[in-house]
Design a protein around this nucleic acid. Structure first.
Lengths: 263, 263
DNA sequence: CTATCTTTGTGCACACGTTCACAAAGGCAT
DNA sequence: ATGCCTTTGTGAACGTGTGCACAAAGATAG
């Protein structure tokens, strides 16, 4: 989902683990961790697949990209597989992360318990509001944007989380990249453009809802009953007629803010 | 990303708009809305594609599934296209939404400005904590879980957002489905299983970070320099040896909580 | 040691998604 | 009117992802 340059072949060429597989590894890892906590020694592909909500053939194929870690007739050793997947995902390393934009969402993210659990550590919270500077959120004092470059450099941060309003996101992104960050998780409803070599993944509430609405509408359309109240909007005249409907200029496309903040 | 039954062909059969295209429509819509607000009358596929961060050929093919709304030699009429995409996504209707689990994240979502902007309306906030009942969050009083079925029925809600801890998610999901909800946006780090006909999409911070970490690790591995401090973990003995490392039982796999809440 | 049974690992076929590249369509100037 | 120039819409080739179905591998019992 890197949005900047989309010229990278979807598969990672280094050891050729398909992108779709990489995206499922965290899912397997979560299911395996749960089994591990219940001291279950081994699982079959069938059981694990069902716990992860995928097809067992897919799971076996996914694991085959990592190597042959199963035992035929028995299944997979839970602990061993947890270790192998963790290693493949790079979770045996320590990943310091900075969160930029400490509004409603940023604060919620900072408080997220599952962060520390797996290699990730909130190294710093950054916000442009001087009023916030010094105030602790989730036990970590918020620092001012001026310090961004210093913080990234001193802590060797390579992953940044953007939870700012859409208007500020690209600017923050540019500074993060300039400071040396090469992976970004973007919660702001904007397309970020980044130089080659920087990965961007986005999380967008509004997009997810719209996709659900599409399918919901289809369902309602198929069964004659239970159609939500149709709000009648006059369609703008056919394409040739250049519409002239003006609106108040300046103000971000969507809510402008990420899934957060008192509008 | 519906996790329950994964037997539905990825494309929507009704009028055959590919799933991948549906997922991009909101992106186009956002870019078009921005243009509309600047009173730009028309755009070429090239311009719009660049604004949406995609390839122009892909964009044209995407639009071709909706019909022929462009004018050769000129481009697309912005207002007209906004209307067509909105209609296709079902955004000309009113979609009441309930949010279940008003912790840090739930509150952040409730405060999200972009909600109302596009057909979506927060119909109710629901939480299991009796202490919260009645207290307003984002101007809407929180209601107790007991009221769930009534709220869904009376407001004709068909979309539910789950922002509870992982442990409660499946249970909440079941109740939502039983109450008549057919689309769910899940923020809890769990696989939800739902009956056929119910769509589930998930948003998972921890998974996104792990995917970033994977790529980050690869980058670091390619260039000899700048490798993060390797935390040395002894790999559990080879698969045959059944590991016996026990851990404190009972306690969700990941942070157990969705990307939220003071752990 | 052999037979049987379970479960992995994967070859193969098919479906989906992306991109190229170009003909057809329309606007615009002369 | 005619011809040029721009930009769409799409056929076709390619790459990625999914799922079936089965042979090979190993465990286990007799």
């Amino acid at each position: 989902m890197a949005t900047g340059r989309n010229h990278r072949p979807a598969t990672s060429r280094s050891r050729g683990i398909p992108e779709a597989t990489v995206a499922r590894l965290p899912l397997y890892l979560r299911a395996l961790t749960a089994l591990s906590e219940r001291s279950v020694p081994t699982v079959s592909s069938e059981e694990l697949a069902s716990a992860a909500g995928v097809n067992s053939a897919k799971l076996r194929k996914d694991f085959s990209y990592l190597g042959s870690y199963g035992t035929r007739g028995v299944g997979y050793d839970v602990e061993y597989l947890v270790y192998q997947i963790s290693r493949e995902l790079g979770l045996t390393q320590d990943w310091p992360v900075v969160i930029v934009g400490i509004g409603n969402l940023g604060a919620a993210l900072a408080n997220y318990g599952g962060f520390a659990s797996r290699g990730f550590r909130v190294a710093a919270l950054i916000d442009a509001d001087p009023q916030l500077a010094g105030k602790p959120v989730a036990g970590i004092p918020v620092q001012h944007t001026d310090e961004l470059e210093k913080i990234v450099a001193e802590n060797g941060v390579s992953i940044g989380v953007i939870a700012t309003p859409a208007g500020a996101a690209q600017q923050v992104c540019d500074r993060l990249v300039a400071a040396g960050i090469t992976s970004i998780l973007n919660f702001a409803p904007t397309v970020l453009s980044v130089p080659e070599g920087v990965d961007v993944r986005k999380v967008d509430l509004s997009i997810e809802l719209q996709i659900l609405a599409f399918h919901e509408q289809r369902k309602a359309g198929e069964e004659p009953a239970t159609a939500p109240a149709e709000v009648d909007t006059a369609p703008p005249a056919a394409p040739p007629a250049v519409a002239v409907t003006k609106r108040p200029p300046e103000s971000g496309p969507d809510g402008d803010l990420p899934a957060v903040m008192p509008a």
